[in-house]
Design a protein around this nucleic acid. Structure first.
Lengths: 333, 333
DNA sequence: GTTAGGTGACGTATCGTTAATTCACCGTAG
DNA sequence: CTACGGTGAATTAACGATACGTCACCTAAC
């Protein structure tokens, strides 16, 4: 491995100068000729700074952790892109973790937290961490930022309530009145979306249906729809709190012989490529996940720089309805 | 931050003893009483070793990189689990990267390769890296293992050819004769699956259809089916080379008014949760991706230990057909 | 002619950990 | 009474990069 010492020897300067050339240290100056010689030597010897040494000296690794609920959830696809991109802007690398690995006592969490492996942590959905881990998280010195509302941490979020409103408003405009809200686990974001639904229903003078929060994933959507059909008045439309649950709703509808959108309109919250390729293609509210990732990283870097960061919902980018085929106007039957 | 020096001071010993207690160094001995005092001090002060210092000293980070094509491809879900699990067994952490980030010249790739950020690299689908990156990969000192056949690296793979055979054999047993093979990008694995299809067709005395390798993803499946229908004799069954393309095939079939499985049987290669929740639920060949991840990590650790590692297909776990609703026996029409 | 200030560069302590070397002490064998 | 081996520990030199303190040299102002 080529070190600064090798460069120094080759260029006939001291390591201090090499380091100064690399970091542009104001303190140590050098002539243009010297700088050029050093740069030449670095290129010739194919020098690459040793990260471990750098981390030790600077007490900073240039790596941030991103902890997600289910890595394979397609809604994270854009979030990941945003996070990786923004981290790269700051010259940083991203260590990706699944919340599953955050069980307290696991190698992974300890390592992240206290061993200086990362400079900061971005987490999505606090509700997933058990109390021990949360305590550990709070006690350790590196900044943490939540990508969802958090009572005890700095956070950045997207307007989940608005997403619920948009989906509901769309269905109301299509003359639906019996609209139910299906799916969603314990997270704050999930509840916010229901809140948006609730508000919009009340604004229209309608009674919101209870939250059929049957959980997360395809099965939850299927269960939710079956429960919805037990209600006194069967719904003509559903808002689905989650992209994978939307798949479950479509499956259950098919299994029960309910035609979508003719007999049941479906609007999903969150949009991914899959929604376009299901049949019927699913009308969904696109959430600005890419932008959330970006904003989260920038805010985290603020924190890591010791500066203040204002928590809140990002307002530059709003949830946006993508109209496809799974919802249609209610015709008087 | 608590360091070994703090422990040493508290326990009234030297740092050498602390290090020896931690690492069990044979060279430096100590009495049981001393060891106990050191351990007590470590607990009291909540000592966590500094990874940067460790990495610098040992020239080893305990981190391996896993580079995938599309992170959000659900088939990686089980692979990830296998990799993370096996890495944890070795006390390691996984740095996850998308091949997109492997564009040569990017921060990420350089960092991985030469700056000692990781001890080894696991890559899936070599075809994704451009020549510059591959050259860099080969020139750098850390071991690399491919999770797919590779001419120039050690590799571990799954039996993709067998998967093609299984899918085709299943359809043949259902009396299908006009079977086409759809989708797949440039990877070796994709071609192997077609090869399996080809072999099985020939074994049945049938002429294999040309490989409708329209690419990767939902759109590819849709395009592939449309192309298949242009063939002289329309197919009664398709093998789909890729899970997302299967979604596209179903969508195109629906759009074209072709009923699955009544008019067209579909078998997918690779299985993910989604397949169960599509309608019709997709019959698919489950690939041992979890086991591939495990085997890859173990082989990589062999390489990192300077030992030899035999490249090849893992045989302990075979591709396995999961029968659902998208394929049915051909009845004489 | 002396000195103040600027320029260009060097030497070295430091980060926390590991491991090779050295050392002090004690009991015992010769 | 001395030499010796074993035990339990301390000292210290790396690992590579960074930044502070220092210094030699040159020019120009007084």
């Amino acid at each position: 491995m080529t070190t600064q010492r090798d460069i120094a020897r080759t260029a006939g300067v001291s390591v201090a100068v090499v380091s100064a050339v690399i970091n542009g240290t104001a303190h140590t100056r050098m002539s243009e000729a010297t700088r050029a010689r050093v740069i030449q030597a670095m290129e010739n010897l194919d020098y690459q700074p040793n990260q471990a040494a750098r981390s030790l000296r600077l007490n900073r690794t240039g790596m941030i952790a991103l902890i997600l609920h289910k890595l394979d959830n397609p809604v994270y696809s854009h979030l990941l892109r945003g996070v990786y991109g923004a981290a790269a802007e700051h010259g940083g690398t991203v260590l990706l973790g699944d919340a599953e690995m955050m069980r307290s006592g696991s190698q992974f969490v300890t390592r992240l937290l206290s061993q200086g492996t990362v400079d900061g942590i971005l987490i999505r959905d606090n509700s997933l961490f058990d109390d021990d881990v949360l305590a550990e998280l709070r006690s350790h010195p590196k900044p943490i930022l939540s990508l969802d509302y958090a009572r005890d941490h700095p956070w950045v979020g997207i307007d989940d309530c608005r997403a619920g409103e948009i989906a509901t408003r769309f269905l109301l405009n299509l003359h639906h009145r019996r609209i139910v809200f299906i799916g969603g686990a314990t997270g704050y974001a999930f509840r916010q979306r229901y809140l948006g639904y609730q508000q919009e229903m009340q604004r229209a003078g309608l009674e919101p249906a209870p939250h059929l929060a049957t959980g997360f994933g395809e099965q939850a959507g299927s269960d939710g729809l079956r429960q919805a059909l037990q209600l006194a008045a069967a719904p003509t439309a559903v808002v689905v709190n989650n992209i994978m649950s939307a798949v479950g709703v479509l499956a259950a509808a098919r299994d029960l012989g309910i035609s979508v959108p003719d007999q049941l309109s479906v609007v999903g919250i969150h949009d991914v490529g899959l929604m376009e390729h299901l049949r019927p293609a699913v009308t969904a509210v696109r959430m600005p996940m890419y932008e959330l990732g970006q904003a989260g990283v920038h805010a985290l870097y603020e924190l890591m720089a010791g500066r203040h960061c204002t928590s809140g919902i990002i307002t530059d980018y709003e949830p946006e309805l993508v109209v496809r085929d799974s919802a249609t106007a209610l015709t008087d039957a």
